Structure formats: structure tokens, C-alpha cells
Amino acid sequence: MLTEERHQLIRDQLAADGRVLAGELASRFGVSEDTVRRDLRELAKAGQLRRVYGGAVASAPFAAATLSQRSRHAVEEKTRLAKAAVGLLVAGQSLFIDGGTTNEAIARAIPRDIQLTVATNSLGVASALADLPLVELIVLGGRYVPDLGTCVGADTLAAVAQLGADLFFLGSCGLDVARGVTAFDSAEAEVKRAMVKNSAGIVIAVTDDKLATAAPYRVAGADAIRHLVVEKTAPAATLADFQSQGAQIHFA
């Protein structure tokens, strides 16, 4: 079976079922799982699917999901990641926290007795931090995008340019050693890149389904990540690749 024939059959199954499993595809096509994984990598780079552990899911429905829909996905996993992520905080730090449901969980997990300065373009993050007595909260304005839950655009970028942070809790749509940190929205990616530029270190807390996947817009290389907070079920080989790029791995 030719490569393009396999790719079309994968696209067809994703359209019908929303997901594929590498082992099942290998049996169906009569090829090795390594061949299937290569097919999935190529389709992911073309933005036609999103790789997850053991296979892939259709990228378009996920990218188009509303903030409310994303907030109901992997709630327990994000809560555990958030608890581990706030363990990296040191009193007196300045932080950027951008959008995403995992970052909102991190904001909710920040203890009330730690003094921080936090700048965010996420209304959800800002709401979670609003009543913390020791947090100096800076809300970065701009054009609000409901599906993202964040402000983007020229005003947001101008505000970011005036600030610096010890750590940037970066919400990642896709995370791959070769492609680095990626996002689905170009304006959102631009704000993320500005925050990366003005931060001393990046923290990413990520569920397994985003590891070894990529979205269309690049934010930063894998070597920019200082701390990677993951589930205990995260694949060891993938984590070793990130460690080789300098990331410290923390398990939730």
C-alpha cells in the first residue's frame, strides 16, 4: 500500500471516528507500527491530526472546541498537574500566566500565603487570582477572544513589552521535541512569543495527549523549556528527549 493511500485511509477514519490507534492501523495496513507512527507524524506536521499516546485524534474538532468544552476535558489530570506546578513557586517571584484550562487550574492552586506578582492576558486566570491577598495582579488588556479566553493583539503585546517575569507558565496546544511549543491561533502564538522573550524561564504543565503533538504556529523551541510538569503515565522516551534539551521533569 502506498504512503498516500495510507494517509487517505487515516484521514477517512479520523473523519468517521475522531480517533485512530497505531496498533490497529498497523494490522489493517500490514505494516509496522513504526511506519504508522511515521505516517501520523507527517499528517500531524500538515495540521491534519493531533498525535496522542498510542495513536492520534482529529485536530480540527479540538482546535475548534470552545473554552467551556476544553474546561471539561481531563479535569482530574489538570488538577494534579496544577498542584505539582505550584510547587515550583518561590515567594517574591514575578510571573506571566497566559491562557488555557490547565493554567486556570494552576491559578486556582496557588496558595493564599505566597507573595507574587502575576501578569496575565487570561480572564479565567485573573478571576482565579482576584481574591488572593498577597498577589499583585496585572491584567493585560487587548482584544478579547471568547474561544481562547484571552486578550490578544497590539495592546496586549505593548503591555507585555513593559514587563519581565521570573517564570512564564505557558499554556501549550502542542508540545514536540522537534517542533517545540506550538499554538492553534496565530494571534495567541504572537502573545506567547512575546512573553517567552521577556521571561527568565518557561514552565509547561501538560497532559499526555499533548505530548509529541504539534499545532500550526510555533511559539518556542524545546530547549527554551526549564520545567516540564507531566503525568506519571507520560512516555519515558518522550520525556528523555525533553531532558536532553535541558528541561527538568516534574511528575504530578
Score class of each variant (00 low, 15 high):
Gln245Ser: 09
Glu24Val: 07
Gln8Trp: 06
Ile225Asn: 02
Gln13Val: 10
Val139Asn: 00
His250Met: 08
Val230Asn: 05
Leu89Val: 03
Gly99Phe: 09
Glu76Ala: 14
Val135His: 04
Pro133Met: 00
Val135Ile: 08
Ala16Lys: 14
Ile10Phe: 04
Ala65Pro: 11
Ala222Ile: 01
Ala64Trp: 06
Glu24Cys: 00
Ser71Asp: 13
Ala74Val: 10
Glu231Arg: 03
Ser186Lys: 13
Ala158Gln: 15
Ala220Lys: 05
Gly174Tyr: 03
Arg112Ala: 14
Arg50Ala: 07
Glu24Ala: 03
Val196Tyr: 09
Ala194His: 07
Ala212Arg: 04
Gly171Pro: 02
Asp131Arg: 14
Ala220Glu: 01
Leu116Asn: 14
Leu228Thr: 01
Arg28Gln: 09
Ala126Trp: 03
Ala205Ser: 09
Ala84Gln: 10
Leu134Met: 09
Met1Leu: 12
Thr117Val: 09
Ser122Ile: 07
Leu239Arg: 05
Leu123Ala: 10
Gly23Phe: 15
Glu188His: 07
Ala183His: 00
Asp241Ala: 15
Asn198Lys: 10
Ala222Leu: 02
Ile97Lys: 05
Asp98Ser: 02
Ala130His: 05
Thr150Lys: 08
Val139Arg: 05
Ile249Phe: 02
Asp147Met: 13
Tyr144His: 14
Ala22His: 06
Arg6Asn: 06
Gly246His: 08
Val52Gly: 01
Arg70Glu: 00
Ala56Asp: 04
Ala189Tyr: 06
Arg11Asn: 11
Thr156His: 08
Pro146Met: 08
Leu9Met: 12
Val86Gln: 01
Glu5Thr: 15
Val203His: 15
Asn198Gln: 12
Leu175Gln: 00
Gly164Glu: 12
His227Gly: 08
Val152Leu: 04
Leu170His: 03
Ala130Asn: 00
Asp12Glu: 13
Asp39Met: 13
Ala126His: 04
Leu25Asp: 07
Val135Ser: 04
Asp155Ser: 12
Val135Arg: 01
Leu40His: 00
Val177Thr: 09
Arg72Val: 03
Ser27Pro: 05
Ala109Phe: 12
Gly100Glu: 03
Gly54Met: 01
Arg179Val: 02
Glu24Lys: 06
Ile249Gly: 00
Asp166Ala: 08
Leu175Phe: 00
Leu116Met: 09
Val125Asp: 06
Gly100Cys: 01
Thr233Met: 10
Gly30Gln: 04
Gly201Glu: 11
Ser127His: 12
Ile204Lys: 02
Val75Asn: 01
Gln248Glu: 15
Arg80Asn: 11
Ala200His: 15
Asp241Val: 00
Glu190Arg: 15
Ala105Leu: 11
Val75Ser: 01
Arg6Glu: 01
Gly201Asp: 08
Ile106Met: 09
Leu239Asp: 10
Ala161Glu: 14
Ala247Lys: 02
Ala109Gly: 11
Arg28His: 07
Leu134Ser: 12
Ala178Trp: 06
Ser244Glu: 07
Val181His: 00
Leu175Thr: 04
Leu14Cys: 01
Val75Pro: 04
Arg143Glu: 15
Val75Ile: 13
